[in-house]
């Protein structure tokens, strides 16, 4: 058994190795160019810790919102029938193809103080969303949620529907079936989707800087800090990118072990 598995067929091995090289070499490039001696001072620079903290809080909030809204949406996409569904799916994936900066402008047009909903909110309560931390979370959710929806929908379609049928024959209503049967069944898919969603939110730049602006402590996340550092001091930008990479990789590896440990084993 084991020997059979360890031999990877050559037609798969070569493109796979090229794929790894293509994805990993830019990271190596960053590492090679990292000014290690300046690492300490750069990290201690004002605003770095703040930007990192803001990034983690906003990406996690965006992922939680995406889970609450996205899992039910994925269920609707996977389980409902009819022509409306493919239209709905196309609409849901719009943020994937939309350039993020355009996404940011679109958010302005809806939630800005002159937007469809935003102007009403501004006139009745005096609240404006743009240029706040909430705006960062919204921008990241807009861009990242489709990743979760698509992953979870795929998992739901692949899951054996007979389990749900059995649950129904045993007297469970649809909500109980969803909670007790479907959700545990697709939990690896949900976890994978959440990880993708979180990673996308963490790296989000275009929609964030457009809709939320850039202000240290309120809306300046790591990708924004990296971009602006690049204008001033490319070495500082490399250090900041590295921090973002290390933190995200560490988080993803830890979560993977915890969430997918059983499924992967």
């Amino acid at each position: 058994m084991r020997r059979g598995r360890s031999g990877v067929p050559v037609p798969l091995l070569i493109p796979a190795s090229l794929g790894v090289a293509f994805l990993v070499l830019p990271l190596v490039g960053l590492l090679v160019r990292t000014p290690w001696s300046e690492l300490g001072p750069q990290l201690a620079a004002p605003g770095v810790g703040e930007a990192l903290r803001l990034s983690l809080i906003c990406a996690t909030s965006a992922t939680l919102i995406s889970l609450v809204l996205g899992v039910p949406l994925a269920w609707v996409l996977a389980r409902s029938a009819g022509r409306g569904r493919s239209v709905l799916r196309a609409l849901v994936t719009v943020p994937l193809v939309l350039p993020p900066v355009v996404g940011g402008v679109a958010l302005f047009l809806v939630l800005g103080r002159r937007g469809l909903i935003g102007h009403w909110l501004f006139e009745t309560t005096g609240i404006t969303i743009p240029f706040t931390t909430a705006a960062v979370v919204l921008a990241e959710t807009f861009v990242a949620m489709p990743f979760l929806v698509i992953s979870v929908e795929g998992a739901l379609r692949a899951a054996d529907a007979r389990f749900e049928d059995v649950a129904a024959t045993l007297g469970a209503d649809r909500w109980t079936t969803f909670r007790r049967v479907t959700l545990p069944l697709v939990s690896p898919g949900v976890a994978a989707g959440a990880v993708l969603c979180w990673a996308r939110a963490l790296g989000e730049f275009g929609a964030t800087i457009t809709f939320a602006g850039n202000f240290p402590g309120t809306t300046q996340t790591m990708p924004l800090a990296v971009y602006l550092a690049l204008q001033r001091d490319p070495e500082a930008a490399i250090v900041l990118s590295l921090v973002l990479l290390v933190v995200s990789l560490a988080t993803l590896l830890l979560l993977r072990d915890r969430w997918l440990g059983r499924a992967a084993a």
Binding site: F108, G112, R114, F131, T210, F215, L228
Partner: peptide, 20 residues
């Protein structure tokens, strides 16, 4: 007391054009 420090001048201008 700015609310946002834009990444370039055109981005700052876009926000004026949108009335935001």
């Amino acid at each position: 007391k700015p609310d946002t420090e834009e990444e370039d001048v055109k981005a700052a201008l876009t926000k004026v054009e949108l009335g935001e």
